[in-house]
């Protein structure tokens, strides 16, 4: 008796979101099946990798992560260019980490200046991310939205606490929103509804579900993302049919195991390869759970994941 393989019946589609400059748009989303289940659906726009750039020289980075960027850490624009020209980044994610009041507490003006420079240096879509401090992010991202009107940035995390201010600013100045919620599918849906009520059109919304590193709670976001895709694709949950952004690199590289030297932890082996694999494996698992944009750091990890995606898509 031959088996007929049970196919899933999907009734939803992930929305297609055009990102970046109008002349040169990068489209994400459009999936009609679970991630890479290409025997029963399509991924017209394979997931994209955005590479990180920091608004100030990073402190306490692992040597392995710092080394490829040693020549550009003082110059975010050059850093962004390097990501695009040397490593083929399809997008750039500018982390405004130095604006954190618990870090350098750099000003909104500083953030605007850096964002403008980076935006001018590249022609791929630019994601601009706050420091996860509600009050400061609201202030800083609002200034960036206004000062960089028509740059068509992706701004995040836009949360329940600041969606009105940042939603309005994005609407007025033509930016896209990465709607951030704390590993909770219901809150993700709720925020998408709120943004819709505010008048933000669907093609300007993406979901940032808050992701964690391998070994540090990855399974929570993995399952939230799987449930998100299940609801979006098989239960017609229209307010979850948005592409997913995974801000993963900073989570991976801050873990203890990504920073230890081989002398400190001989059983963990070569620190460069270990860090790269921790990042690449986190990225791969999030891809399998439904990630559309992966925010990554190390060029070797980017290359590994890109190659893997090609194999998953290969005919």
């Amino acid at each position: 008796m031959a088996l007929e393989i049970p196919k899933m019946s999907y009734n939803g589609v992930i929305k297609e979101i055009p990102l970046g400059k109008e002349a040169n748009p990068v489209i994400v989303g459009g999936e009609t099946s679970y991630p890479f289940y290409l025997f029963e659906g399509e991924m017209p726009h394979p997931p994209k990798i955005a590479m990180e750039v920091y608004d100030a020289p990073p402190e306490e980075w692992a040597q392995a992560a710092l080394e490829p960027f040693a020549d550009v850490i003082n110059d975010p624009a050059a850093w962004a260019q390097k990501c695009v020209s040397s490593y083929g980044a399809e997008m750039v994610a500018l982390q405004l980490a130095s604006t954190d009041p618990n870090a350098q507490d750099n000003s909104g003006e500083h953030a605007v200046e850096v964002t403008k420079k980076v935006a001018a240096a590249i022609d791929v879509p630019l994601i601009v991310l706050g420091s996860n401090n509600l009050e400061k992010d609201t202030e800083v991202l609002k200034m960036v939205a206004e000062a960089c009107a028509e740059e068509r940035l992706i701004l995040g995390p836009v949360t329940e606490g600041n969606y009105k201010a940042l939603g309005a600013a994005s609407l007025a100045y033509h930016h896209t929103i990465a709607a951030g919620t704390p590993i909770d599918i219901n809150q993700a849906k709720q925020l998408n509804i709120l943004l819709g009520n505010l008048g933000v059109p669907d093609e300007r919304i993406m979901v940032d579900p808050t992701v964690a590193s391998l070994g540090y709670g990855l399974e929570y976001c993995y399952s939230v993302m799987e449930r998100d895709r299940m609801a979006a694709l098989t239960q017609e949950d229209e307010r979850l049919q948005f592409p997913i952004v995974c801000n993963l690199a900073k989570e991976v590289w801050k873990t203890k195991e990504a920073k230890l030297t081989e002398q400190e932890a001989p059983l963990l082996g070569d620190p460069l390869k270990r860090g790269v694999l921790l990042e690449a494996m986190t990225a791969l698992l999030l891809l399998l759970a439904g990630g559309d944009i992966l925010i990554m750091r190390h060029p070797d990890a980017v290359q590994l994941v890109r190659g893997f995606m090609d194999d998953l898509m290969a005919n």
Binding site: L214, G269, D270, L278, M281
Partner: peptide, 12 residues
């Protein structure tokens, strides 16, 4: 088996 590869895999 190499630590740098096995450890991430075991975490996954």
């Amino acid at each position: 088996l190499q630590g740098y590869a096995l450890f991430p895999l075991l975490l996954s």
